[in-house]
Amino acid sequence: MIPIDNGTTENSTPAQTALVTGGASGIGRSTVRLFLTRGWSVVAADLNESSGRALLDEHPNEVAAGRLAFARADVSSEEDVERAAAQAASLTGHLACVVNNAGIGGAFGRITETSVEDWDYTFAVLSRGVFLGVKHAAKIMQAQGTGGAIVNVASLAALTGDAGPQAYSAAKASVVHMSRVFATELGPHRIRVNCVCPGAIATPLNPSASRGFDGSELARAQPLPFVGEPEHLASAIYFLGSSESSFVTGQYLAVDGGLEAAGPRLGQYLGTDPRYGSLVGVNRGNTGVKSTVHGKATQ
């Protein structure tokens, strides 16, 4: 029997730390909670200090035990990101996971009217912020010599052309590709880099999903008939950030209720979606063999 190499030291290290950017609200907050429940220590980095204080107040026992700390950080600032990563590493002496989750909606409106300043601000947070998070996580993990995991939060908007504003979509697409590129470079150091692509998740950044599901456009587009919650993303992030995914790197995981799989839903209009067809049979195309209709579809 061949022994399994986890690529991390999770099972042999008594205390590990995760750094979660954007950790004071939404997906980040749920991720912090899940890592804590799994026994990890966590530094939540966020620009919003009041949300950070509320997070600490929510977990007084973990704060008292030195398992939870807050770092005010603007992820577009290299100094802030470097400081937050160093704080996380010092919490237990072992930085095992960095989750680059901090996000904004960014520039919106017609491309002909979008300012360079708004475009650059969007990329500074969503793209440069991930680059900085990976850079400083990798420096620490390489120095530790024990490997680690980096999870970047992209978006369904990175995978299709009509799931978000232009700047947001382009910046998130760069996150997917950076995850592949950095995974290739850092793999020999046993540092895994993956990303998750959330769909319509009910968070403060996505109020349209928070308003409910029944009768919405989302209900017609998304195969699973319920709204995505931050906890759904937290579970996926934890999987990719822990030794549970020790042989997975350079991948993206769409956590989207099936939106990517459903695609543009052209089947509704072309008549190929079985849910909208009235007949059952087989179309034999131009084979010269006659197509067959077996009967009407049952409900």
Score class of each variant (00 low, 15 high):
271 G>M: 11
114 T>R: 00
55 L>F: 12
124 A>I: 00
275 R>A: 11
246 S>T: 05
277 G>S: 14
51 S>E: 11
14 P>S: 02
88 A>I: 07
3 P>L: 12
149 A>E: 05
181 V>H: 01
46 D>W: 01
208 S>A: 15
174 S>Q: 03
227 V>C: 07
199 G>L: 13
163 A>I: 06
147 G>Q: 12
121 Y>L: 08
84 A>K: 01
297 A>M: 12
107 A>Q: 03
20 V>L: 07
81 V>K: 00
258 G>D: 08
19 L>P: 10
175 V>N: 05
263 G>A: 12
153 V>S: 06
6 N>G: 09
194 N>I: 04
38 R>N: 10
282 V>D: 06
252 Y>F: 14
68 L>P: 11
251 Q>C: 11
30 S>F: 09
141 M>G: 05
71 A>F: 08
152 N>R: 06
234 A>Y: 10
233 L>Q: 09
44 A>V: 09
3 P>A: 12
86 A>K: 14
154 A>I: 13
141 M>R: 03
243 S>A: 15
87 Q>A: 14
162 D>C: 05
109 G>C: 03
147 G>P: 13
202 A>S: 15
79 E>R: 12
186 L>H: 05
213 F>D: 07
258 G>F: 05
32 V>D: 07
170 A>V: 13
63 V>R: 05
153 V>T: 15
107 A>S: 10
221 A>K: 15
221 A>M: 14
165 P>K: 01
63 V>L: 10
212 G>I: 14
57 D>K: 13
10 E>C: 07
159 L>S: 10
180 R>N: 02
125 V>K: 01
249 T>H: 10
56 L>H: 04
179 S>C: 01
26 G>Y: 09
132 L>W: 00
30 S>L: 09
233 L>T: 07
61 N>G: 13
145 G>D: 06
236 A>H: 07
46 D>E: 05
233 L>N: 06
158 A>P: 13
191 I>F: 01
256 D>F: 02
210 S>E: 15
246 S>G: 12
181 V>E: 04
292 T>F: 09
134 V>P: 00
183 A>G: 14
283 N>E: 10
224 L>C: 03
74 D>H: 00
164 G>W: 09
39 G>S: 12
15 A>Q: 14
240 L>G: 11
68 L>Y: 03
20 V>S: 08
138 A>I: 03
81 V>H: 00
151 V>L: 04
233 L>A: 03
121 Y>F: 06
149 A>K: 10
294 H>D: 11
297 A>R: 15
295 G>F: 09
224 L>F: 08
